[in-house]
Design a protein around this nucleic acid. Structure first.
Lengths: 140, 140
DNA sequence: CCCATATATGAATAGCTATTCAATTGTTTA
DNA sequence: TAAACAATTGAATAGCTATTCATATATGGG
């Protein structure tokens, strides 16, 4: 298996929100059971801050409406109004969601007159979809 | 750009929870503005059901604790107790989250005595991480 | 057989989130 | 300039979710 350390972006095992390894164990007396394992795994655990960033990103994709918006934009740029019509939703709801997609830099936009045209920002989303689609299609 | 239609798994543009294209538009009078665009994009929009499935999957990854659990398991299998100790969390919380990861088939487990050892189910998660890490590391 | 331990589970609570409604901004056109 | 319109924004509400606490199940040791 590939080294996860790299994958989880532990560029440096620097100071993190985590307490030091020897501190109190919350409940399970792990230090009595598998202290070695715990010691070994702790530096490989994704630091809380980076975990939160990544979770925030996945969270943006964790909504049917936003996924449908992205799918609509996969082929062509569209204005808010047309997106709303295509999804049969209110413009306000769509605008709120586009804001999130914008914040995560998944879409970009362009103003033309009183319309605002949105389009996909890069190809990362496409790759993510492919991976997840593959996973979801495996033996259920 | 790659054909999104394929990526979004519209195996068939069959009957879906969506109303027919001519039905009432909620608010924006899109049929007056860009009816052609709306018509064109609608069959490409990810169907609601599939969008929900995919959103559910991303939702599992949209939590710092679960991401950290996965990072802990990337290298080695670990029992609940050690995972809890490594993350400095209660066993109950960890167990609840592992249940979700199990439901999404991201981890598998093995019982040995009174311990239950968890490990990653496949390599999809690894790939997802890589893609997202790349995205997050691009010019902020 | 009883007790400690490992894990799982259910209920409860606090915090987050998606949509709606109302109001606002900025732009075009009449 | 007034009116219509596209889009955004803020507040409010309903629904979801992560953790905690309490309890349950099961396994191994004495």
């Amino acid at each position: 298996m590939i080294a996860p350390h790299f994958l989880f972006m532990n560029k440096r095992n620097s100071i993190e929100p985590q307490q030091n390894p020897e501190s109190d164990a919350p409940s399970c007396e792990a230090r009595l059971v598998h202290l070695d394992q715990v010691r070994q795994v702790q530096p490989e655990i994704l630091p809380l801050l980076e975990a939160q960033q990544m979770a925030e990103f996945f969270g943006v994709l964790a909504d049917p409406t936003r996924l449908r918006l992205l799918s609509a934009l996969a082929n062509q740029e569209l204005c808010v109004c047309d997106l709303a019509a295509g999804l049969k939703m209110g413009e306000s709801a769509v605008s709120h969601q586009l804001r999130l997609l914008r914040a995560m830099r998944l879409v970009k936009y362009r103003k033309e007159g009183r319309n605002v045209y949105y389009s996909l920002a890069d190809s990362h989303v496409i790759n993510l979809y492919r991976e997840v689609a593959e996973h979801l299609h495996e033996t259920h």
